[in-house]
Design a protein around this nucleic acid. Structure first.
Length: 552
DNA sequence: TCTAAAGTAT
């Protein structure tokens, strides 16, 4: 179609600005931004003066390709030609600055606009939301900006609400339901026009607030769904601990809507396979990605490495890392380091870590957590501490609470509880539950009642509503037959109305899933299972010379 | 002509 347009365009001798605009627009619609820019230059060479339509479109293109330099030139041209007071040109210029990471300049344009429309506010709101913080004007927050929009008589539309929804996160903004309400009352999106943008934003908002049943309700109410909507719900189920529903949904999107999962859908669903420890499901996703010719995609490979490692197959994880992912980023290396750590192969994790540095890839916080926990699990205390110190010195990395918890775990696990406590006292951040939790489990392992009781005290202060802390405390005293303390703790829990959902583990054999609670004897093969467990424990504590045949 | 959506690594 576009080549036809081009043919007609070339055949006309005197081309006015409208002709140029429509051809440029054609390329933009086809995402051929480079060709649109080439045409704009050509237009300039032929001394055709751009109008408001041209400038708005080209500004957008500069934003899309993140060419700030040229974007500024277009902004200047708009000022010279006198279109800068045009609302759409102004909005477009703001969007360009915002997409090029110059939010402050976008705000400046906004402040200087003589006239605005809803879109002007929307550009600022979405740009600000993309930054992840709420600071459109100094001292003002995004909500105040939204209130300003209302007070100036502008009516929020579906764009406005869809940009505000991602800011509604537990602990940040609690306006999610109100915004949803506004949409319903004003007939924006959903049932009326089945707006897939609004729908996927709502689904995502409810999922992030741990209300996936509300995500589902939004999903069911929609009249039509696209891949964004389906994937948002798949991800919602994965993030909310319902991996089986995520897998069902992946099938349904193809069966009912004929929508093929893309790379984002597959990356979203892979952690579901890990949670279910379903190597077969994970392999099916892998096979599907090969069919879709996505198997060399970096983010998909990273998700596959993680899935294989968590499903127990270090070999497959390594194969994907070595053969499939041709380009490797920090996530690829971090995933592989964590994979070795997870399998108790600390030395190999350390080798990977140094290889990563050799490749010139900068470790991030996730890498550090991965390598430190790998060292910890394998008892490589000196290596771990060495890496920690070099990172803080060489890379000027600031320790996070997670990294500190890893260091405490590293020292504590190997019995250096005094050093761990010293580290906690000297760490630059307030030690949180994860830090005290690490000290606690190390203290229990090594039988140090002093650090243990200190950790319990801190944990109960920090999270008086977390039932796990009380259960752990009760179990500890039960092991000393201090039933008086146990009763006291249980009473405290009851008074606070706390209940702990018992943990369980499961395994799927030939399509049948067997699940087990603590001290569970309900399984028909229970006695056989416990016999095997005893054998395994004997091997681990070295009473029996390790004979691998016993295990296979 | 401008403005909006889904993802992976502790």
């Amino acid at each position: 179609m576009l080549t036809m347009s081009r043919f007609v365009f070339e055949s006309i001798e005197t081309k006015n600005v409208y002709l140029w605009n429509s051809l440029i627009n054609g390329y933009v619609k086809n995402h051929d931004f480079d060709e649109a820019l080439v045409l704009f230059h050509e237009m300039g060479r032929r001394s055709v003066v751009p109008d408001d339509y041209t400038l708005a479109t080209i500004s957008k293109v500069c934003g899309e390709v993140q060419d700030l330099g040229f974007g500024k030139l277009v902004h200047g041209k708009s000022i010279r030609i006198g279109f800068v007071s045009d609302i759409v040109v102004g909005n477009s210029v703001m969007a360009m600055y915002s997409r090029c990471g110059m939010f402050v300049d976008a705000m400046k344009v906004f402040d200087e606009m003589p006239h605005r429309n809803v879109g002007s506010f929307n550009v600022i709101i979405s740009g600000c939301a993309a930054l992840g913080d709420c600071n459109p004007t100094s001292g003002d927050d995004l909500w105040k900006f939204f209130v300003r929009m209302l007070s100036e008589g502008f009516k929020p539309d579906a764009f406005t609400i869809a940009s505000l929804l991602p800011m509604c996160c537990a602990g940040k903004w609690d306006y999610g339901r109100e915004l949803h309400c506004y949409l319903v009352k004003n007939g924006l999106g959903l049932k009326m026009g089945s707006d897939v943008h609004v729908g996927s934003s709502l689904i995502d908002m409810y999922s992030r607030n741990n209300k996936v049943f509300l995500s589902r309700r939004v999903f069911d109410q929609m009249e039509s769904r696209n891949i964004y909507v389906w994937t948002a719900l798949v991800n919602g189920y994965v993030q909310n601990g319902a991996p089986e529903y995520a897998l069902i949904l992946l099938r349904d999107m193809q069966m009912f809507d004929g929508i093929r999962p893309n790379k984002v859908s597959l990356v979203s669903v892979l952690p579901a396979c890990s949670t279910l420890a379903g190597l077969i499901g994970g392999k099916q996703i892998h096979a599907f990605s090969i069919k879709m010719e996505l198997s060399n995609d970096i983010s998909l490979c990273n998700a596959l490495i993680d899935m294989y490692a968590k499903c127990g197959s270090l070999d497959y994880a390594r194969l994907v890392f070595e053969n499939d992912s041709r380009i490797k980023d920090a996530i690829s290396w971090s995933s592989m380091i964590s994979a070795y750590g997870l399998h108790g192969r600390g030395e190999e994790a350390v080798i990977m870590y140094y290889k990563m540095l050799d490749q010139g890839i900068k470790p991030d916080i996730i890498t550090v957590v991965g390598i430190l926990s790998a060292c910890s699990k394998s008892g490589l205390v000196d290596e771990g501490i060495g890496i920690y110190n070099s990172l803080m010195a060489k890379y000027e990395m600031k320790p996070t609470i997670e990294i500190c918890a890893c260091v405490v775990d590293l020292l504590g696990r190997s019995g250096k509880l005094d050093q761990a406590l010293e580290f906690i006292n000297e760490m630059p951040l307030d030690p949180g539950p994860s830090v005290w939790g690490s000290l606690l489990s190390a203290s229990i392992t090594h039988g140090n009642s002093m650090t243990r009781d200190l950790a319990y005290r801190r944990l109960l202060e920090l999270e008086p509503e977390n039932p796990s802390n009380y259960i752990s405390l009760s179990n500890t005293y039960a092991s000393y037959t201090r039933w008086d303390v146990v009763a006291e703790v249980r009473t405290e829990m009851k008074e606070r109305g706390l209940r702990k959902v018992p943990g369980c583990s499961w395994i799927t054999i030939s399509g049948k899933t067997h699940s087990f609670l603590v001290a569970d004897k309900a399984h028909p093969s229970s006695s056989l299972i416990y016999e095997m467990l005893e054998d395994l424990v004997s091997i681990m504590i070295g009473e029996v010379s390790a004979d691998i045949d016993v295990l296979t």
